[in-house]
């Protein structure tokens, strides 16, 4: 049955149980089967669809294979707004991550001071994260309307009202909602990190007469770097996927002002009814997410080692 060599190998690693080399795999098998079967089957469909000229509503059998034409059109055709979607995705990602990171760090520092009510504060910060995004989007649609809550505060304090539904500010409105929802994510993670920092370096710095700012810059920040990167990677993946809030608030508009890649996929597949191009855009979005996450994880490992 088995070759002598294989049999020998088995003997070498055999322990108490009869098939130890199979045990770890057999434990993973159900998870693997469910996840990968479903994923593989869906990806198979997706890639198939991306190579056809199928329109939404046509039975699948009627799709004609067009090779890579859909990809070519998205990337190079002058009427394609794919690159605009990439650009807006970039703005969306950087516009949310940078302020969230900075605010998160600041507020975490603020909260890490010993004061009464801290546990209540952290509990309160959980709430925005767990709210239903589709409902958050609806609520935000009203809050950001011209006679809405946001403009009320801006008018009270600064005497002006903004057109959040316009092409210049719509993306900012979406970003502000995200900042409200997800800055607490950074706060909570950084707070957890700050509380586990070793006290010794600070005591040494105090002896050396370092200012608070200096010890933050030279001690806290380097120690926190791995944590900051982890949080960034996780949020990065998440922001790239955001669909519901934007869908509900502006549907990608006005014009293409809030059409990020997930919205682009939706608009192409279901509104423009172009399943071929929509699927091709999906494939590219997935590749983009996987590739950039891979790079970020790599980068994080590098930087963590240096730190």
């Amino acid at each position: 049955m088995s070759t002598p060599k294989a049999a020998g190998k088995t003997r070498e690693t055999s322990g108490r149980s009869r098939h130890p080399h199979l045990t770890p795999y057999s434990l993973i098998l159900p998870a693997f089967a469910v996840v990968f079967l479903l994923a593989a089957y869906s990806f198979f469909w997706l890639i198939q669809l991306s190579l056809t000229d199928l329109t939404f509503g046509q039975p699948f059998e009627e799709g004609v294979s067009v090779g890579l034409e859909n990809y070519r059109w998205l990337l190079f055709h002058k009427s394609s707004t794919f690159w605009s979607a990439v650009r807006i995705t970039g703005l969306h990602v950087s516009g949310t991550l940078v302020p969230e990171l900075l605010l998160g760090l600041l507020i975490a520092l603020l909260l890490s001071r010993k004061m009464r009510g801290n546990s209540i504060f952290t509990a309160a910060l959980i709430i925005p994260i767990v709210l239903m995004p589709s409902m958050v989007g609806m609520v935000a649609r009203l809050y950001f309307s011209y006679d809405g809550l946001i403009n009320f505060f801006i008018e009270t304090f600064f005497g002006a009202k903004f057109n959040w539904g316009g092409k210049d500010l719509a993306l900012l409105a979406v970003i502000l909602v995200d900042i409200w929802e997800w800055t607490p994510f950074f706060i909570l993670i950084f707070l957890a990190g700050l509380q586990t920092l070793p006290p010794d370096p600070y005591e040494a710095a105090l002896v050396d007469g370092a200012s608070a700012l200096q010890s933050f810059w030279h001690i806290t920040l380097p120690l926190m770097t791995p944590l900051i990167l982890t949080a960034l990677v996780l949020r990065f993946m998440d922001v790239l996927r955001i669909f519901d809030v934007i869908f509900v608030m502006f549907g990608g508009g006005p014009g293409t002002a809030t059409t990020t890649l997930p919205l682009y996929v939706y608009r192409t597949t279901l509104l423009a009814e172009d399943v071929g191009r929509g699927s091709a855009a999906s494939v590219m979005l997935i590749i983009l997410i996987l590739a950039s996450t891979f790079l970020l994880v790599r980068l994080r490992q590098r930087l963590s080692f240096q730190a």
């Binding site: 011209y146 009202k161 057109n163 539904g165 508009g253 014009g255």
Partner: peptide, 12 residues
């Protein structure tokens, strides 16, 4: 038109 008309759905 009202400010923000470019984002108006019919209910708005």
């Amino acid at each position: 038109a009202p400010v923000g008309v470019e984002s108006y759905s019919f209910p708005e």
